[in-house]
Structures are given as C-alpha cells and as structure tokens.
Amino acid sequence: MIDRHDPHTDLHSEQGAVRGEHPGRARNPIVKAHDLAWLEFQKPDLERAELFARAFGFTTSLRTQDELHLRGTDPGSPCVLIRRGPRSRFVGPAFKAADSKDVLRLADATGRTMAALPESIGGVAVDLVDPSGLQVRVVADMHVLPGLPTQQPLTFNVGHEVARVNATQRPPREPAKVQRLGHVVLQTTRYLETLNWYLEHLGLIVSDFLYHQGQRERGPVMSFIRCDRGSTPTDHHTLAMTLGPANRYVHSAYQVPDLDSLAAGGQHLLDRGYRRSWGIGRHIQGSQIFDYWRDPDGFLVEHFTDGDLFDCTLEPGWAPMAASGLAQWGPPATKDFLGMTPGREALRELRAVIGALREDNEFDLHRLRGLMKAFNS
C-alpha cells in the first residue's frame, strides 16, 4: 500500500485556514512582481560598510565617494545599494516587475509617475509608499550584470551511497559567496493594512500565517509572502511581515551555495571579529539553513541555503507564533535576534511599545501579551 501522507503538512503549518480567515492573496492585483530587485540603505561610513560586505561575501559592482553597489554571483542587478548619509537607516526595498508596462500600469493606478533610473543601473521605476510609510520602488528593464564564478558544491558520501573515494573534504575558510538577495523582513504597527497593500499592489501571495497563541480568532500577526509566478516556483518568502510596536527593518537574507560555504563563511566572519546573532540552524517556515550576523551599523543580515520553493497552487499554512518554533534544529533563538538584548536597543523598543499603545494602530495590549508569550515560549 502506498503511503500518501505528506510530511510537508506537519511542518508547513499546524492546519489550514478555517472559514472566514484571510485568503492570503488578492483577487485582482494591479501587477504581479517577479522578485526583489534590491534593498537600499543609507550609512555614514561606506569604507566600513564595504569591508564587512566583502567579508560577508558580496562583490562590489560600483564604488564612488557617496555610493556603494553590492552584488551576488548571479547575473542581474546589484542586490544592495548604499548611499552615504548622516545616519544609518533602511530606505526601502525595490521589487522587480515583469516589464516596464507593469511599472507604468502601477504608476497610473496609484497616481504616481514612472521615471528613469540612473544610468549605472538602467531601467525605469515608480516610487510608492506603503501604509507603514516605507518607500517601495517597483523597477524593470535594468542593465543585467554578467554572472560571476561561485563556490562549487562538495561531493558528499550520503549514508552508504559513496561518491567520493580517496579524496578528502577541505572547504576553505573564506567568505561565503553571496549568490543573490532572497528576502527582507519588516515590522509594522499596521500589519493587516500593510499586508493587503502588498497583495493588492504587487500580487504577492502568503505561504504561511502565524498568530499569537490563544488569539487566532483575532487574525494573523505575521506572514511569509512569496511572488506569484504561476507554475514557476518561487522562494517560500520574498517578503515577511510582522506586527510590532514600530515600523522598521528586521533583517534581510542572502543565498549562498550550500551548508559548507555558509559554515566556513561564518568562521571567516568570526576570524575578523564580526558578531554572529544566531545560528547555525534550519528554519521551519521556509526550511532554510540559516546563519544571522550583525553588520557594523547594527543591521541584521542572514546567510541562507536550501530554502523551499512553492508555485501558485499551495495555500497558506497557519501556525502559532513561538520562539521555539523558529527552527527545526540549532541553538535557541538569541535575545539579540529577538531584539531583547539589554541596552540601548531594548530601551528603544520599550519606548516604541509605550508609543504604539498610545496611538491608533493594530498593536494593543492583547497583541503585546501575545508577543511576550511568543518570545518566552
């Protein structure tokens, strides 16, 4: 007898949606974004930023006095743009549209204007603002940077299947070569409104919803969202969004070839005095093997490999939010990763909580209790 049990079901979600819950997609989105194009940051010290970037595994594709473009080995656009500014801040994401017609369609629908991008990048863009106040660019027809050599996967002896004889494994302790930008995670005080905006404007679809334990009837508080390219599989999440006391960047993730390059690259970062935030482990939602680091400006960045790919047919999973549910294996989530390390950041988060509870948004006392329960679970 054939076992038709799908092991994916047990890890992807606790159970599917029940009647009346969010469907995880818009019926008639304006356009369907194909991918993340890049992330834009502002930093005061580009020399320090570039030094970390090289250790992390990026390649510099453009360097001027006031601008730094970082790329992976995959062909395409740079995946991180950094401009010199008075303070460190996340400016916003840029999503790649199918073509310039979609950019124009989005501009017309939102009352915005399509404009040419700088010649160093090429193409066109429309600048939007999501309900959290974040600048969101949608771009198309950029110059395509040629692919670069990447690290080659090792040959493995898996169990009794022998593929390597009279040869050793010696992965070099060197930067893990970033292949591409994978996803960005954002926190918002207006989670549902912002989620719906991305589904309706960019045609993104939800892979997984998380809810606070004991509060499922109040709706989800986090979503892992992918691009809808029909039958073409895409990353489990290109954007993840969570309800919290402040509108802010949480982290961004960059694909590397395999576990050995990720682990050896981590040793390379440690050797140079950089700080690991959390890792190495394997997530549940998305299944990625992960390793999180803090850059010199305090931004959380992730190396990942072996992530899930879904096509448009898979419906959203639903599961309770819990710190213990962040990984299948690996060390427990750290206070640094959860944003609970005592010090300046914790005080800033406390002030954000107090401010959010006084304002008209989706973050209330019930949500605060649910969040604290999740962090301590």
Rank of each mutant, 00 (worst) to 15 (best):
P342N: 00
E349C: 05
L357P: 01
A323R: 15
D336Q: 08
E359Y: 04
L365I: 13
I354A: 11
A356R: 09
G355M: 11
A346D: 06
Q328D: 01
A322W: 07
K335G: 12
L338I: 05
M340K: 04
R369Q: 00
K335N: 11
G370A: 03
L338P: 00
R344A: 14
T341C: 10
L357I: 02
D364T: 05
R367P: 05
L326H: 06
L357W: 05
L357S: 00
A352P: 09
A352V: 12
L365V: 15
P332V: 06
M340L: 09
R358D: 04
A327S: 09
H366S: 05
G330Y: 04
R348M: 01
L368I: 02
D360L: 10
V353R: 05
R369A: 10
E349W: 00
Q328H: 08
R344L: 11
L347D: 14
P332A: 00
S324R: 02
R344N: 07
A333I: 07
R369T: 09
R367A: 15
A333V: 12
G370P: 04
D336R: 08
G343H: 13
D360P: 10
G330Q: 07
L368C: 14
G355Y: 06
T341S: 06
S324G: 08
F363N: 14
A322K: 10
G339S: 05
K335S: 15
E345S: 08
H366Q: 12
A346V: 07
P332H: 13
E359H: 06
R358I: 03
E359W: 04
L347M: 12
W329T: 12
M372Q: 11
S324W: 01
G339A: 01
P331I: 15
P342Q: 04
E359T: 12
R367S: 12
P331S: 00
P331A: 12
T341V: 02
G325S: 03
E349K: 10
L338K: 15
A327H: 12
P342S: 05
K335V: 07
V353K: 10
G370D: 02
L350A: 11
K335A: 15
M372Y: 13
A322N: 11
F337D: 08
G343Y: 01
M372D: 09
L350E: 15
M340Q: 13
L326W: 05
E359A: 15
G330D: 02
F337R: 11
F337E: 04
A322I: 01
G325W: 00
A356L: 05
E349G: 06
L347C: 09
L326N: 14
L357G: 02
R344T: 08
A322V: 05
A333T: 09
R351V: 05
R367K: 09
G370S: 03
L371Y: 04
G370V: 05
R367I: 02
A356W: 08
P331V: 15
A323D: 06
H366E: 08
T334L: 11
A356T: 09
L368R: 07
G325E: 02
G370F: 02
K335M: 07
P331Y: 14
M372G: 13
D360A: 15
L347N: 14
L338R: 15
I354E: 08
P332D: 07
A352Y: 06
G325P: 03
G325M: 01
F337W: 13
R369W: 00
E362R: 12
P332E: 12
R351W: 07
L347W: 06
W329M: 09
G330T: 04
G339D: 03
L365N: 11
F363W: 03
E345T: 10
N361M: 01
R344I: 13
A323F: 13
